[in-house]
């Protein structure tokens, strides 16, 4: 069993196996998104308070989930990269950071687009979730900036991994401190709106979209690591055979 995983972590095998899986995963992701969008935009009933505006939830909340999940995966890959020096994990750290930063940016942008009609303002300092998300974006930018500043990709990945691990320790603390700060300054906040009550006809499409975002993340992460592997192993014979063949 272990040998199979060990073989998979060799860049060459990974390239081949990921290449075989990717077409299926891509088709599944596209179909899943089509179904999820139909469910969320058409089938799910409008919210009794927010009307149709609440439908932003079906992209906002999954983006926010994935922004955290990508960070967790990145830190996990960072640990593997630091302890076992696995090349695939080193590549995964950077690619997770790129995807995670984009999910974070999307969660922020859609959150603001949701906030404008609900709060009457694009940005609400009183909303702990948006604030945490903004800090998370800066954490991602730090990892990306550090990685980009170091020329050697293997060293860059390990340095970025240390920062990613420091970040993962900090994320719960930051989240808690933001909530704590928020309760302290409650008086200053304008009307807060709560996310719609979890009625099952709205909750199921949300969970489904969350699942599709995870599928998307896995598929694209796999594709991105696969290309990086080919780039970084350009000197090896197998990579040459792949490019010529």
């Amino acid at each position: 069993m272990f040998h199979r995983y060990a073989a998979l972590s060799s860049p060459r095998h990974f390239y081949a196996v990921a290449g075989a899986w990717l077409p299926w995963l891509s088709v599944l992701t596209v179909l899943g998104f089509a179904a999820g969008l139909y469910w969320g935009l058409v089938v799910a009933p409008p919210d009794y308070q927010q009307g149709e505006a609440y439908r932003i939830i079906y992209v906002h909340v999954p983006s926010a989930w994935l922004s955290l999940m990508a960070y967790t995966v990145m830190a996990g890959a960072g640990l593997v990269a630091l302890v076992w020096h696995v090349k695939l994990a080193e590549i995964a750290v950077y690619e997770c950071a790129v995807l995670g930063a984009w999910f974070t940016a999307l969660a922020l942008a859609t959150g603001m687009l949701w906030g404008k009609p609900m709060w009457g303002t694009w940005w609400q300092w009183g909303d702990a979730r948006l604030l945490s998300e903004l800090i998370l974006l800066f954490l991602y930018i730090g990892v990306l900036g550090l990685h980009n500043a170091i020329a050697d990709p293997r060293k860059a990945a390990r340095v970025a991994s240390v920062l990613a691990l420091a970040g993962i320790v900090n994320i719960p603390i930051i989240h808690y401190s933001v909530e704590w700060w928020n309760t302290l300054h409650q008086g200053a906040t304008v009307t807060r709106f709560d996310k719609p009550a979890a009625h099952s006809s709205m909750l199921w499409p949300l969970l489904f979209m969350g699942g599709m975002f995870i599928l998307y993340f896995s598929t694209v992460l796999l594709a991105r690591i696969r290309v990086r592997v080919l780039e970084q192993e350009a000197d090896r014979q197998w990579a040459e055979e792949v490019r010529n063949g």
């Binding site: 800090i135 900036g145 500043a149 900090n170 930051i174 401190s177 933001v178």
Partner: peptide
């Protein structure tokens, strides 16, 4: 690292937030 100063601030400031709060 060349120009490590601004990068240092970029990395460290978000991690300073809980202490500040």
């Amino acid at each position: 690292l060349p120009r490590g100063g601004i990068l240092l601030a970029l990395i460290v400031l978000p991690l300073y937030i809980p202490v500040l709060m």
